[in-house]
Nucleic acid binder design. Sequence first.
DNA 1: GACCACTATTCATCGAGTGAATAGTCTGCG
DNA 2: CGCAGACTATTCACTCGATGAATAGTGGTC
Lengths: 178, 178
Amino acid sequence: MSASYVLLGLLARGPMHGYELKHAYDQRLPRAKPLAFGQVYSTLGRLERDGLVTQAGQDQAGGPERTTFAITGEGRAALEAWLSDVEAPAPYVTSALLSKVVVALLVADPARATEYLSAQQQAHTTRMRELTRLKSDQDLTVGDHIAVDYALTHLDADLRWLQSALHRVADLHREVRS
Amino acid sequence: MSASYVLLGLLARGPMHGYELKHAYDQRLPRAKPLAFGQVYSTLGRLERDGLVTQAGQDQAGGPERTTFAITGEGRAALEAWLSDVEAPAPYVTSALLSKVVVALLVADPARATEYLSAQQQAHTTRMRELTRLKSDQDLTVGDHIAVDYALTHLDADLRWLQSALHRVADLHREVRS
DNA sequence: GACCACTATTCATCGAGTGAATAGTCTGCG
DNA sequence: CGCAGACTATTCACTCGATGAATAGTGGTC
């Protein structure tokens, strides 16, 4: 995943220990999939094993012992490579929406698939309204704003796809049942 | 993941053994993330453990021994529940594109982020052209068609987001560097 | 009869992700 | 004063998802 690169990126701004790192992550990527503390430490372990970060001292100043980690030269190189890499655009399509429609047609009938698609349209529309309302909030950070925009454009894409899928339910049913 | 429900859905049409199941999966969800044989068997193991499928006989007719699995009543109920469940629309935003822009701004400068965004736009545009060309193929199944549509609408969403992100690079940089 | 392709499954291993456990410090409140 | 509760910081056990290689038998073909 890209989570390890994000941690690496955060460490590139200066050494930190796990707990700090987790908060920095939450702050820089609000609305991202929540990252558990446990995951931070296991990821740090892998990064250390791979030589991308090193322990930069044990601290024990008031509070539990904590280990500060710093990025290494190799780590900076890996980060740089990741930043230069373009993400492969849609090499394959994994969507719960798509799977569900196909399965609905496999085990039930077109009516069932249509029912699901409509319910999902409804849920999407509601969510879009929520997020649109949220966008007009004054106290939204730029990070929030850009994340919400991402969600909105993709919800809109889903909706357009759901609509076109509705039109194809009958065709797909015929194919799936052959 | 939804892969286990898809397998369950395929078994709902009749008992099968792992190898058959894997091919049925490939056929019904072309363009989905490839599912390795190993995964099919481990998933079947979990489904069996949870009582959603049962072994329905060992067969040894020419070739290696194979175990046929059948869906149970409990399995049908679980499948039904999954089909009735609407997917939570965009509860959070995890996108490599978004992460990369944020990290680029953290460790480098706006120029670097802009460079990345442009390169990604380029790659997306190329991929969209490929997929659009593919859509005009005659020998495309309905399943393929609907999957390609999904990819296309989402590539378009990415492109619109990339454009808006380009406009916000300066703002985001200021925020991230505070 | 050596080789290759195909059927069918298992295994070892790793990374991702979750929740609970542990343990120390600091703050406030009665 | 003493103790509850919140916060800092990390570890652990465990499950799921995913990958690649290993194993083993069968059928066809040159």
